[in-house]
Every structure is written in structure tokens, then in C-alpha cells.
Deep mutational scan, measured.
Amino acid sequence: MQIFVKTLTGKTITLEVEPSDTIENVKAKIQDKEGIPPDQQRLIFAGKQLEDGRTLSDYNIQKDSTLHLVLR
């Protein structure tokens, strides 16, 4: 499925993911596309910070959802 990741600069990254993918996995995909190390990434969805060990389906993230990427 496709999800979107919006950065603070207003750029939107499109990712191909599975509901069973972990947040860690998603961060690795963002690193592949953007070169941002996962340890600098914070992903936010519906006002919640997403934890590495959980999956997209744990957070009820569905296709065409938009996550927000904050760098630390």
C-alpha cells in the first residue's frame, strides 16, 4: 500500500509499505529515499509519536495515510 510522509519543509515522500511493516522498517525506507538516518527520525501520526517496534497496523495506519516526519 502507499503512504505519504510529510517533512517539515513541506516536502511529501511517497512510500510503498505493508500494514505489517514496523515503524523501524518505514524509517529505513525513508533513509533509502532521503538519506536521513533512522535515529534522527521521529514519525508522528494522529498526534502520536510512533514507536520503532510497533507496526503500521498497530496504529491503524491505512493506505494513503500521511505521517509527519520530525528530525531530532
Rank of each mutant, 00 (worst) to 15 (best):
R54L: 02
D58W: 06
P37G: 08
K11F: 05
E51M: 04
H68V: 02
L69T: 04
K63E: 11
R42Y: 14
T7H: 14
E24W: 11
V5Q: 00
Q41T: 14
K6N: 15
S20I: 12
K29M: 08
A46E: 14
L67T: 04
I23P: 07
K29W: 03
R72Q: 10
T14W: 06
T14A: 04
F45R: 02
F45E: 04
L43N: 00
K48P: 02
R42T: 14
I61S: 01
H68Y: 02
L43D: 00
G35V: 03
D39F: 08
D58Y: 03
P37A: 13
T66H: 15
L50F: 03
D32P: 02
L67Y: 01
F4V: 04
L69D: 01
S65D: 13
V26H: 00
E34G: 04
D21V: 11
E18P: 12
R72Y: 15
L69N: 01
K6P: 02
I44A: 15
P38I: 13
S20R: 14
T55F: 09
V5H: 00
I3G: 00
L67A: 04
R72G: 12
A28F: 09
K27Y: 13
I13L: 07
I13E: 03
P37E: 11
Q31D: 09
D21M: 04
D64K: 02
E51G: 02
P38W: 14
T55L: 08
T12I: 09
L69I: 14
E18T: 10
H68K: 07
T12W: 08
I30K: 00
L71H: 07
Q2M: 10
K63H: 09
G53N: 10
T12E: 07
G10Q: 11
D58H: 06
E51T: 03
L67K: 01
N25T: 05
D21W: 02
T66L: 11
D32H: 06
K6E: 14
G10M: 09
N25R: 15
P38G: 12
A46Q: 05
T22W: 12
I23R: 01
K29N: 09
E24S: 12
Q49A: 06
D64L: 04
I30W: 01
N25L: 05
H68L: 08
E16W: 07
K63I: 08
K63Y: 07
V5S: 01
D64R: 03
M1H: 06
T22K: 06
G10W: 02
E34P: 02
K27L: 15
G47I: 03
V26R: 00
M1R: 03
L56H: 00
L71Q: 04
I36W: 07
D58T: 10
F4M: 11
T12Y: 12
F45T: 05
P37N: 10
K63M: 10
A28G: 05
K6M: 15
S57K: 12
K11A: 13
F45L: 09
F4N: 08
Q62N: 06
L67R: 01
Q62Y: 07
T9S: 09
T7V: 13
L50Q: 01
I44N: 08
L50T: 07
V26N: 00
S57G: 08
Q41H: 14
L43V: 05
Q41R: 08
V70G: 04
V17T: 07
I36M: 09
N25A: 15
Q49I: 05
E18N: 14
V17I: 07
N25Y: 03
L8K: 05
K27H: 12
Y59I: 05
Q2F: 13
T66M: 08
M1K: 03
T7R: 13
I30F: 09
R54N: 13
S20P: 03
T12L: 15
P37Q: 15
D21Y: 06
S20K: 13
Y59K: 01
F4S: 14
D52V: 06
G10E: 14
S57A: 09
Q49P: 10
G35D: 04
T66Y: 08
I23N: 02
K6T: 06
R42D: 15
G10R: 02
E18K: 10
E24P: 03
F4I: 08
D58E: 14
D64W: 12
T12G: 10
K63G: 12
Q40M: 03
G53M: 07
D39R: 07
V26Q: 00
N60A: 13
L8T: 14
L67W: 01
P19R: 12
L71E: 08
R54V: 11
F45H: 09
M1E: 09
D39K: 10
T12A: 13
D21P: 00
L67E: 01
K48A: 10
T55E: 15
T55R: 14
G53A: 11
V70M: 11
K29G: 11
D52I: 10
Y59D: 02
K48V: 15
F45S: 11
S20Q: 04
P37W: 10
D52N: 14
G35H: 10
D58Q: 08
S20T: 07
D21A: 09
D32V: 06
I44R: 04
A28Y: 04
L50A: 02
A46N: 08
K63N: 11
K11D: 13
L43P: 01
Q62T: 11
S65N: 13
D58S: 15
L43W: 02
D32Q: 09
L15M: 06
D64P: 01
M1V: 06
L71W: 12
Q31T: 05
E24R: 02
V70N: 13
E16P: 03
F4Y: 07
G35T: 03
L56W: 02
P19W: 10
L67Q: 01
L50V: 05
A46T: 09
E51A: 04
I44V: 13
I36A: 08
T9K: 13
R54M: 12
I13K: 01
L56E: 00
F45Y: 09
Q40G: 11
L15P: 00
E51L: 03
N25F: 06
A46D: 13
K11N: 14
